[in-house]
């Protein structure tokens, strides 16, 4: 018999919590973003675990879509970071925090 699903779920919850905590406490955009990936992975793990527990292929299909979304998000997110960052270099301004609040 294999390891019970509850264990996987527990692992997934802990992973999710670590990721969420990371987003909340870190301030490096890239690291925050990686923490979001951790959260998505936790969700994927939960999906696969449920898929096994329910003997249902649907869960795995969902993981597939989450992966696609994650890829698209990464492209756009990193694009934004790069775009902002390049302007900083152009403008040589080191400290605008135009948006506050």
């Amino acid at each position: 018999m294999t390891v019970p699903g509850a264990w996987y779920l527990g692992l997934s919850v802990v992973l999710f919590a670590i990721g969420a905590l990371g987003v909340l406490v870190r301030r490096n955009v890239l690291v925050m973003f990686m923490c979001v990936e951790l959260m998505l992975n936790a969700a994927n793990l939960a999906f696969v675990t449920f898929s096994r527990m329910l003997d249902d292929i649907g869960g795995q299909a969902l993981v597939f879509f989450v992966l696609v979304v994650a890829a698209a998000e990464v492209v756009v997110g990193l694009g934004i970071v790069v775009a902002i960052f390049r302007r900083r270099q152009d403008a040589t301004a080191d400290d605008f925090h135009v948006l506050k609040g």
Binding site: A20, V36, L40
Partner: peptide
Amino acid sequence: KYFILGAFSSAVFVYGIALVYG
């Protein structure tokens, strides 16, 4: 800012889907 918070909320949302699915 929108992106970081949006991605965070999407991850939360996906986890919600996972739990509902389970």
